[in-house]
Every structure is written in C-alpha cells, then in structure tokens.
C-alpha cells in the first residue's frame, strides 16, 4: 500500500500552498538531513518533473531548505527558511535535472557536513506523502512515516540475523525491510521501518555488531 493510514489522507497539518511541492518537499529535506545526522554546511539539490517546472511558485525551494533545518510541515518558519539556512552558514544550490525519474515530483538531495556526506532520491507522491527511492547510492525504499533505521554494513552471512536479533530482544517489530548491496562481500545497506520508536540504546547495540559501518535513525514524527 502506498498510503499507510488515515492520517496520510486526512493530514498532514501544513503550511500551504501545495502538499506535494511544499509539505512533501519538507519531508524529503528532513529525511536527507536526518540521514546525514547533523546540520549540513552545503546542499546541492536537483529537481525533476513538476518539481522542476513549478518549484519557485510553490515554495519548493523554501520547503526543502526547511527540511534541511529539520522543520516540520506546519512550521511557520518555512516562509523564511532560505534566509534561516543562509544565516546558519548553509550553502544551498538548486539545479534542474533531466532524464528518467521514478515520479513526476522527484528531488535528488546531496548534503555535506565536514567529512560527512549523504545523498537521497525522494519522490513526493501526493498529499504530503513521500517515497525515498535511493540512499547513498543504494536502491532502498522507505516512506519516512515510521521510525526508520538505516544501516550501512558489510555484505556477509549473519549480519541481518544479528540486526533482527537485537531488534527482537528490544521488542521492536519490523513493519518493512529493504536490503541492497553494491557487490558480493562489498558494502550493503539495510533499511528497517519499525512500528515503534528505536531508542539510542538499541541503535548503539546494533552499531557494535560485526561488519557494521554506520547507522542512522530517521524519524519525522520528532519535532525540532
């Protein structure tokens, strides 16, 4: 199901004017920011399809910048988020992309903060709902609607069972899971959408498992 619950239809509370171009764009920006794990000092955003055609009129640029600042969809600061980003020292560039994309409203967001780097491809599928199609070069999907664990790890036997073992010990139920790898025995990414909040303690236990490289938690229900 693309749309998961009643509040993906009635909701979200948001600042206008467009649920796809404003609220969905805020959420795509937030996912990228949370994957990076800190405020970026540089952002390069590529817009496709209807995003590219109409982004200024809809405030898609303001919305993406708001997401990078971790604002929620109904935050009154969205109106001046570009100024907020600039005054926090963030350098943001927008460009228009060409070529095949999964959806008419798609953005590719690349972020830098010192040594750290994160890149996602996200689509705004209607009513403020989003679908992430790619994270750091891996073809993995998630919606941002649930607490989500994003794990970069080596592709070896037993890694997934180690992860699911920790989650089962901590009583976290997996709603959806997606795995992609770059090469056999190379790097792999596992994305887990959970039914309940993933605590820092659970994240730490998983982080200490063998072959684990990096972990991030994405949770759009948290308010900044």
């Amino acid at each position: 199901m693309r749309f998961k619950n009643v509040f993906s239809i009635i909701g979200p509370p948001m600042v206008g004017p467009s649920s796809s171009h404003t609220a969905g764009a805020v959420r795509i920006g937030r996912v990228a920011r949370q994957l990076l794990g800190t405020i970026p000092n540089k952002a390069a955003i590529k817009l496709y399809g209807s995003f590219a055609e109409t982004y200024q009129g809809h405030g898609t640029d303001l919305a993406l910048a708001a997401g990078l600042l971790d604002y929620d969809t109904d935050d009154a600061r969205i109106r001046h988020s570009l100024e907020d980003a600039w005054s926090s020292g963030m350098e943001i560039s927008f460009s228009l992309g060409v070529g095949h994309v999964p959806h008419p409203n798609t953005a590719r967001v690349a972020l830098w903060a010192g040594e750290r780097y994160a890149e996602i491809v996200g689509a705004s599928i209607g009513g403020g709902n989003i679908m992430i199609h790619e994270m750091n070069g891996f073809d993995v999907q998630c919606t941002g609607e649930f607490p989500t664990l994003v794990l970069l790890h080596g592709d070896f036997p037993g890694v997934l069972s180690g992860i699911t073992h920790v989650l089962s010990e901590d009583g976290v139920n997996i709603g959806y899971m997606d795995v992609d790898r770059k090469a056999r025995n190379g790097e792999a990414m596992t994305v887990i959408e959970a039914d309940t909040k993933i605590t820092a303690a659970t994240q730490l236990k998983i982080q200490q498992l063998p072959h684990m490289i990096k972990s991030s938690i994405i949770d759009l229900t948290l308010r900044s």
Partner: peptide, 21 residues
Amino acid sequence: EVNASMGRIIATPTAGSCGII
C-alpha cells in the same frame, strides 16, 4: 485562500483540495 497565502491547513487529501472537506 488561507492555503494559497501560506497559512496553516490540513491536507484533505491534498493542499490543492484542502477547502472542500
């Protein structure tokens, strides 16, 4: 009109159609 002027609304199901419900 509140939506078009960047005011606070509920998407029902979208912002473009937020007035009807």
